[in-house]
Amino acid sequence: MAQISARTAKWVKWSVVPAALLVSGLAVSQASYSAFSSQTVDAGNNWAAGTVKLVNNAGSAVFKAENLKPGQTGAKCVTVTSTGSLASAVKLYAKDFNTAVTNDLSPFINLVITEGTGGTADCQGFQPSVTPADTSELTLASFGTKSTFANGVGTWAPAGATTAAPVARTYKIAYTLSSTAPDSAQGGTANVVFTWEAQNS
């Protein structure tokens, strides 16, 4: 026989308050414990549903330009593909700039970076995404100082995508050894790792 006096009911109704607070406290402490007690980092394996994914088709090095003469020029196109489900911003920056360089050639290498579509590795059929092309023009030395996402170059902001329906952009990177490169730069070298990074926006 469920029989409860109104007084009991009242008591029950209000006693549930501290109980609920207690429960929430337990929830918070448990959640905190599970979040912060372990310092194990199993990074890279926890692919969440919403994420960013980015690949490029450069294979290995974009450039291996040797025996450059002043005024010599060249260009390569790299297609970067995003399959992340989150909208993101993509920047191009330099990693591992000028490792083991004694005679720095980078101040005399002018880069022109253009975003667009299409194009083979040597940029046959490349189309700038806007006309006139929106380019980043800077020396390799200057690019080398752009070593983080924050000061990278580029304007691409891909929307969310899937593996089945990726979104892509082609970056044309052209270089020229300045025709006014001094003789002191003869035999000079420079190297850089062109790195694209996507961060969800």
Partner: peptide
């Protein structure tokens, strides 16, 4: 933002000038 990021680096690109222009 426990922001997602992923980088897509290329191999090291190298440039070298002629020993004598």
């Amino acid at each position: 933002h426990a922001g997602f990021s992923v980088s897509a680096p290329t191999g090291a690109s190298s440039f070298s000038a002629l020993a004598s222009y």
